[in-house]
Amino acid sequence: MLNFILSRSMQSIPVIFVVITITFFLVRFAPGGPFDDEKSVEPEVKAALEAQYRLDQPLFSQYAAYLGDLAQGDLGPSFKYPGRSVNELIATGFPVTAELGLYAILIALCIGGISGVVAALKPNTAQDYVPMSLAMLGICMPTFLLGPLLILVFGIWLEWLPVSGWGDLPGDKILPSFTLGAAYAAYVARLSRGGMLEVMSQDYIRTARAKGLPERVVVLKHGLRGGMIPVVAYLGPAFAGILSGSFVIETIFQIHGLGRFYVQAAFNRDYTMILGCTVFLATLIVVFNLLSDLLAAWMNPRLRSQLGGNQ
């Protein structure tokens, strides 16, 4: 087990390194610079600013210096928020994004998992068609359409829920979380339906029924473990999607999370902030993919014993 984790972690180091390198040079090739729109700045002041942020040095030595700082866990100072480091800014924004993402994934698992299982129990009946059509709709509808639509219905027409903010008004977390989770609920529904359909046709389900177990036990105890493996394997990629999807949600609902910082940093050419967010998110995504792979392998006893986890 430990060997597996170690070797997978080693494999992810080059991935993160490539992400850093590509991002570093790409943002430099984008036209404009961090101090370009401050027109009133004197040339000497601008030169001083650029010197302070190492922008006067050759590109490659900037790159080397950045990697050196990064190795010590320092993501550098922000260009646009003077006196604040990227580490600080991420620490302010990320908890909000993490909370939003957590709710979204819980919503996706609960709604998607239940409707997928329910659909699989009676395939090709209304009990299957209704949730699966909704799931198809959920996959097709982009969040930037679903978000405003939900705001219109529940915020403006019905006046049930606040239309923006995060933690300021009661219930203001509901719409953003649901908007973000909806598409993933749809994927989870389709995956769990497929997984359950496959498992429920297995011989061992017939064995369980022949033992006279109540249908509830047959489904929940004998069916669910195998049927949910595709969903668990999907959690890693879903996590990546939810992180990047949260940027859109944070913009629609005016939430001050990491996504908003990231988007603003891109507009402002805040080089260190863009890089810092990218490195941070890439690392998270790699870690979560590893975790979901491990969990999926662990859920299968045959793979578990191969990983040496039963000792």
């Binding site: 011989d203 064995t207 022949a210 859920m299």
Partner: peptide, 12 residues
């Protein structure tokens, strides 16, 4: 049943 390889639940 016929096939003991598939008639037992591999997850339990």
């Amino acid at each position: 049943f016929q096939d003991p390889m598939t008639s037992l639940n591999p997850y339990l």
